[in-house]
């Protein structure tokens, strides 16, 4: 997995609440058997018309947001399905960090498995970051996972919370499965005990 430590880049504002996984990546793109190549279809139904032409007023189509690396969004970002195609599409587009007042649980977890940092901040803080993002490519935000801070282009600093284990894995680019495989002995022991206690399982 790609590491995430520090990022300075363009932030795009998407002030909509409840941005769901069907908006992020519509179902017709879930038929792939690969993880890559979904960036071109990120936010597909908002980004393109039926003929595949770009909608000029959609934020990521505007010249100043084409190189977006940070997304600032409304409450409950990523609600809906468990499709990991959503973070795959976000990452493939080049976005490595999403900031919102809250995230849907499964989406939030999926981000960490893919080198994306989701940051939950109070609405007031997101409002300030949204304003900063609206200034376009001249306003670059900095996200520092080590110090757990987001810094606006004006130097205003917001601290955020992140689970210590998730932070460690993201900073080191660790593969969860490898870590758990190293605990195979503990799993063997659990299975042996559980098969005594609940043999019907």
């Amino acid at each position: 997995m790609d590491k995430f430590d520090k990022l300075t880049g363009i932030a795009a504002p998407m002030p909509l609440v409840n941005i769901d996984t069907d908006m992020i990546i519509p179902k017709q793109f879930l038929k792939t058997i690969k993880r890559s190549g979904l960036g071109v279809n990120l936010f597909d139904e908002m980004r393109y018309d039926r003929e595949g032409n770009e909608n000029a007023d959609f934020v990521l189509n505007k010249p100043q947001y084409r190189e977006t690396e940070i997304l600032v969004a409304g409450d409950n970002f990523g609600c809906g399905s468990s499709r990991e195609h959503a973070p795959w599409a976000i990452k493939d587009f080049g976005i490595r960090c999403v900031i919102a007042p809250s995230f849907a649980d499964i989406f939030y977890n999926n981000c960490f498995k893919n080198g994306i940092l989701p940051i939950a901040l109070p609405q007031e803080a997101v409002d300030v970051l949204m304003k900063d993002a609206e200034r376009g490519s001249n306003a670059r935000m900095t996200v520092d996972l080590e110090s757990q801070t987001v810094t606006t282009s004006d130097g205003e600093v917001f601290s955020f919370e992140v689970d210590s284990f998730k932070k460690h894995c993201l900073m080191e680019g660790l593969d969860d499965i490898g870590l758990t495989m190293a605990k195979a002995g503990a799993i063997d022991t659990f299975e042996a005990q559980a098969s005594q206690a609940r043999p019907w399982v």
């Binding site: 990991e84 499964i106 758990t180």
Partner: peptide
């Protein structure tokens, strides 16, 4: 529900 990375994790480690 879980994402695909977690599907792989459960397949490999239960």
């Amino acid at each position: 529900g879980i994402g695909t990375s977690e599907v792989e994790h459960v397949l490999a480690t239960q």
